[in-house]
Amino acid sequence: MSANPQFPGFLRTSIGRKWVVAVSGLFLIGFVIIHMAGNLQMFAATPDVINRYAYFLKTNPLMLWGFRLALLTAVAAHIWAALSLARENRAAKPVNYAVAGRKSRLHVTLASVTMVISGTVILGFVIFHLLHFTAQVVDRSYQEMETVLDGKAVHDVHRMVVAGFSKPLISAFYILAMGLLFFHLRHGAASVFQTIGIRDRTLSRVIESGSWALAAILFLGFSSIPVAVLLGVWKL
């Protein structure tokens, strides 16, 4: 890249930063899809399935931390680029019309104008979620939950999740955050394609409905677990 004198300037331009938001967003979408697929192992016939998966992740620290580092970089880049663009956008429109036009708002969805708000709440949620289930400091008793898997004592993730979601307020917060993720991705996933230049008249319909469907599947997939716990599918 250093061979290209244009490259550093790229990050200062409008389109350059839009690419940063899109590419980091695409990576994060990929992550949430994998995360959801991992979570859905809760519904497997035995708790061993998700416990084995968690054990596999924990015992491959190079892969785990490499992925965590990539995620952290993507999150930081996503927030930095999006906020710097949003700041400029506010400055570029200092005065609004006395009367709001109808045509100008035709395609402006609630989701698209609340990206910073939904993004901020999701960030807050992610921090709580990490303290809750990853660092396990919200309720330290999770650290002691163990089960026996193939003759070894391993962390009982299944039990921790059931215990975590048995508190209705925490479950409600998780479901609310997933609702906001649905909103964020409804606009965000479709926008990725526009920003990286894959969109035309015929594709746009597929992109719009595909993004909506993806956002909805993620919402339902993630929310199904706290809902199942609250409905008493698993007993502690």
Binding site: L106, H107, V108, F193, Q194, T195, I196, G197, D200
Partner: peptide, 27 residues
């Protein structure tokens, strides 16, 4: 400002220029 993919431009354009061209420019 920067495009946030809401396509109000396309809706009001008197020459009905398509916002797909923005995707082409980004590419």
């Amino acid at each position: 400002g920067n495009c946030s993919n809401q396509y109000a431009c396309e809706a009001v354009c008197p020459k009905e220029i398509s916002a797909d061209l923005i995707a082409r420019m980004n590419r």
